[in-house]
Simulated scan of single mutants.
Amino acid sequence: MNMRQGFAKTVLELLAEDERLMVLLCDIGVWGFRQGFADHPGRVLNIGILEQATMGVAAGLSATGLIPVVHSIAPFIVERAFEQLKIDFCYQRLGGNFVSVGASHDYAALGCTHHCPGDVGALKNLPGMEIVLPGCAGEFAVLFRQAYANGNPTYFRLSETGNSAPQPVEFGRMLALRKGREATVVALGPMLEPALAACEGLDVTLLYATTVAPFDAQTLAANCPSGKVLLCEPCFGGVLAPDVLRALFPRPVVVDFAGQDTEFSRNYGKAREHDAALGLDAAGLRQRLARLIHAH
């Protein structure tokens, strides 16, 4: 089951469990929620390609005590409706759930209009916004159930590719999957499996993060004996660098990050091909990690 299928399954289950839940689709995911339209009339709505207006509708629902779930493609839900997320939800301190697909270059063949590597960095600038990057469908189910009704605006970033098996994730917490002395690798969501392969045979710590905001500074501070950190980010690189520096202050720290450069992707191809070209596969991460270990 991919993440989009897992998203629909989880939310359909919650529609039957929690009468406060409302689903607003922006003309995608309609087929996946076909049973929801039938079983819960008036609680699953296809608003259409109107992301900014949909955010306003969602904020109004939230203000009445309902729990909205808005679903669209990442550049439209984040970049097109950024002001509505900022003012309608974060400034008003309203709760809501914003579930995207197609972030970074998952929809590589559709060109720049459907690329969105800047979503995580943009949303980290919104006070109060929570950001979640599950690594697979099973992790999404756990994380969504833990956070969907917490009263905060929360962004869930679904990926077309994911890890083959779920980890015992918890909202707001990192997992220490292995411990070593020469460097600490922080892998976000779907970056876990290439990071695991890159760390093979090396004396390094590997932390797995599915919650970007709030950032788990405590776990990082307790698992970074070297002061060297490699961030593996499936978005523009360096998004978590300020969090790392704050978590480890006042210790001297060396931080490198494997992520997409802040440039437009002008080539076509599949997401995995883009990852390899950007050095986000196991070989590319291994090369960065070796360089970091030997840095002075």
Rank of each mutant, 00 (worst) to 15 (best):
A165W: 00
A165S: 15
P166L: 03
Q167W: 04
Q167C: 15
Q167T: 07
Q167I: 08
Q167P: 03
E170M: 13
F171A: 06
F171D: 01
F171R: 13
G172F: 13
G172H: 08
G172R: 08
R173E: 13
R173W: 03
R173M: 05
M174A: 12
L175K: 09
A176K: 15
L177R: 10
R178M: 14
R178D: 05
R178E: 15
G180H: 09
R181A: 15
R181P: 00
R181N: 15
E182S: 15
A183K: 09
A183C: 11
T184Q: 07
V185P: 06
V185Q: 04
V186Y: 03
A187K: 02
A187F: 01
L188S: 01
L188H: 04
G189V: 02
P190R: 00
P190C: 06
M191R: 10
L192M: 04
L192V: 00
E193R: 01
P194W: 08
P194D: 11
P194M: 02
P194F: 07
P194A: 07
P194I: 10
A195D: 01
A195H: 01
L196Q: 15
L196K: 14
L196G: 05
A197Q: 13
A198L: 01
C199G: 01
C199R: 00
C199H: 03
E200T: 10
E200P: 04
G201S: 14
G201A: 14
G201I: 13
G201N: 14
L202S: 12
L202G: 00
L202M: 15
D203N: 13
D203A: 10
D203F: 04
V204C: 12
V204L: 05
V204H: 03
V204G: 03
T205G: 05
T205C: 08
L206M: 12
L206W: 10
L207F: 13
L207Y: 11
L207N: 12
Y208D: 12
A209W: 11
A209N: 06
T210F: 00
T211Q: 10
F215V: 09
F215Y: 15
D216Y: 06
L220W: 04
L220K: 07
L220Y: 07
A221M: 02
A221C: 10
A222P: 08
N223T: 08
C224V: 05
C224N: 10
C224P: 01
P225V: 06
P225E: 03
P225A: 04
S226Q: 11
G227V: 11
G227M: 02
G227P: 14
K228G: 09
K228I: 08
K228Q: 11
K228F: 05
K228M: 09
K228V: 12
K228N: 10
K228L: 06
K228C: 06
V229H: 02
L230A: 03
E233P: 12
F236Q: 12
G237M: 08
G237W: 11
G238P: 05
G238S: 05
